[in-house]
Nucleic acid binder design. Structure first.
Lengths: 124, 124
DNA sequence: CCTTTGCGCAACTGCGTGGTTGCACTATAC
DNA sequence: GTATAGTGCAACCACGCAGTTGCGCAAAGG
């Protein structure tokens, strides 16, 4: 999972982590692990681990104030993940459109020149 | 993890699964597990398991033709996940905007959306 | 008929990880 | 000073999962 995309997806796959991220997102000046742990049915240590995952994937960052460590949300780091999904989904929809227009045109011989080089659309 | 959002995120967290999804996405009429397994350095069984995960989360569907089972991509099922991210990211940016205007408008050249995680805005 | 090919099921292993407990350390409060 | 949170580190356990191997079975193709 050294790949950053996998990291983001994996981080967001855990409901607890999404919950913490939301909690963090609601506090403009962040929160400490112990604060967050009070609102959640797990140990502070567990919360810390989750926060470390978020930090490691860039979804959160830390800032020290005296002896306490405040965590801040950085949801923008998840944008590439959202883009990945969106690319596939829209590509699929484009293909669907092409297909339906093709069927509607009911003329296999006047098929439009495929997209790009190397990938002709052999509808089989 | 019975929650569907977690399922989608978890499914996409695996590079192999994303790879298979892309491979599937490239074939308009789907592909069988054995076909996909030929292009990938793992067993057919492993591919089948991955495909089952994709089906279970709605990211793919199956269709039987005779004795073979073709898998089709359904990337649109991941849209809710993308939306989840996008909501948080944009909310965070709104908050940032509010903050910067509050601090004093002399700021940042750009707070525009759509950049990678590598260049965090100058939150100071 | 028999052979081949592809699918499905089950068991097993290795590893990552969510969660816990316990303890040591350090900065604040009294 | 002492007491009191708050943080960090480490060991440990349970569970899930990616991946493998092995086998059985059904559908095509001779």
């Amino acid at each position: 999972m050294s790949d950053t995309l996998s990291g983001v997806f994996a981080a967001l796959a855990d409901p607890m982590r999404r919950r913490l991220l939301d909690d963090l997102d609601a506090r403009p000046d962040g929160a400490t692990a112990t604060e967050l742990a009070r609102a959640v049915p797990v140990t502070r240590q567990a919360v810390v681990k989750h926060l470390q995952v978020l930090v490691r994937t860039g979804l959160a960052e830390t800032r020290r104030h005296g002896r306490e460590v405040r965590y801040l949300a950085r949801p923008a780091s998840a944008r590439p993940a959202a883009s990945w999904i969106e690319e596939r989904a829209s590509a699929w929809e484009r293909r669907l459109d092409r297909l339906t227009t093709l069927v509607g045109a009911r003329a296999p011989d006047e098929v439009a020149p495929g997209r790009g080089p190397g990938s002709p659309p052999p509808v089989r």
